[in-house]
Design a protein around this nucleic acid. Structure first.
Lengths: 232, 232
DNA sequence: TGGCATCAGATTGCTGACAATCTTGACCGG
DNA sequence: CCGGTCAAGATTGTCAGCAATCTGATGCCA
């Protein structure tokens, strides 16, 4: 677990939750990893209570699993949860994209295009984790355009969880992902075509779900042992 | 703030979060009230750390607002949040009701009817807060029938927040609420009529939203002062 | 060899105390 | 009478330490 932190020694629990979140979403720590309170506290130079709060926050978001007397682990969603995350997004995001299109402003649209560009750059430098993370931010930005605070927050956590799901179940390692989908969607929003935006978003999410390899996989530790015994 | 607690002295933070939640949802503490950590800790006979965790939990659910260095308050949703809560529910619950209808089992349906009955009893004994609370549980029960964990959790928090909204904005104090709607919806689910369940749920939620008096109201303290100055 | 009790080490759960911060009310000058 | 300043009290934020619990390794016995 290498959680490089460039944070000032005196950070609040939200700062630490944010730093941990970025590390998890960019796949710098793998699902299932243990997050020891003392260790994290040392890394960020704070006491354990602060780390505890940050971990509890992330647990509420579904990015971390806490087990009493055992500690905190980076969430490790199963196939069922993976499916449910995308099904829920498919319920919320299409209509939200429509709202966003209906109240699109020029600066907001250009912010969307900047997101896409940043995502592209990350893909070209080969930083897949960062690309997935930025692709998530694009969806959150759309939700915020729709000016719906509650839905934005829900989508934000769902997008986070999606990032974990993609890390675990994405079936086409080097696919060009979905830049085309994002481009088309942005165009629809820019022209204020709500119906089209809704359709595109729905298709996009179904597409993502279809590209997951949702066969039951072995628990991480088990598969490692299996690999070793085969290679011997 | 009278938080009667019949809890054993040794309770976990979840127990306390639950007790607080019930108190808030049944309107035994009014929105905006302060929740002092020491006070709550004394009432439940635990240390402050446990209360802190419980409060943080409720803050994540949107039932409590925490302000740094100032403390925790029972949430006091504004008109905008009130509208958004119901709009989000309208996005999630109709489809979920359809799923519930499509996989309805006899015991699950009878549990729904029990919920309705309990709600009726509360209404007849005049316990309006309890009735609203139970009416919320009915909606959560439907979400659970649909066998969607994530959506169930989201709906559960939205239903909680709805309870606060109803406490603040319900326009017809003695209306017979919505028992008819719940009955019809249950019938649709019992007969496995998914399309009808979806329609009924959508209508039901729009109905609820329409019966809120969403004019901007004065902050609680301010209106009190206004009343006093008028009566003088 | 395989299964089970036991124990040391590591880690979390919780409490009490102290520091930092905010609120309230009194005081004071204009 | 009004606004601003200051100090006391109340409340939250954080830390360090200890008790409770879990993990995994060791040794024992069938």
């Amino acid at each position: 677990m290498t959680l490089q932190s460039d944070l000032p020694a005196n950070s609040s629990s939200e700062d630490i939750a944010g730093a941990l979140r970025r590390s998890i979403l960019a796949h710098r720590v793998s699902p299932g990893s243990r997050l020891v309170e003392d260790e994290v506290a040392d890394i960020f130079g704070v006491g354990r209570s602060i780390v505890r709060m940050a971990l509890q926050s992330l647990a509420h978001e579904g990015l971390v699993t806490m087990i009493r007397n055992r500690g905190a682990f980076v969430a490790d969603p199963g196939v069922r949860e993976a499916r449910e995350v995308f099904e829920t997004r498919a319920l919320l995001e299409p209509r939200t994209a429509r709202s966003a299109a209906e109240r699109a402003t020029a600066p907001a649209v250009s912010r969307l295009r900047q997101h896409i560009e940043a995502e592209h750059r990350a893909l070209q430098t080969g930083d897949l984790g960062q690309a997935v993370y930025l692709s998530g931010l694009y969806h959150v930005a759309i939700a915020e355009m729709a000016d719906q605070t509650i839905i934005s927050e829900i989508i934000s956590t769902l997008v986070s969880r999606s990032s974990l799901v993609v890390a675990l179940y994405w079936s086409r390692p080097r696919a060009l992902c979905e830049s085309h989908a994002h481009h088309a969607l942005t165009d629809a929003i820019a022209t204020g075509d709500g119906a089209r935006a809704e359709d595109l978003m729905k298709g996009h999410l179904l597409d993502l779900l279809a590209n997951l390899d949702l066969r039951e996989r072995q628990p991480v530790g088990g598969s490692l042992r299996a690999v070793l015994s085969r290679s011997s």
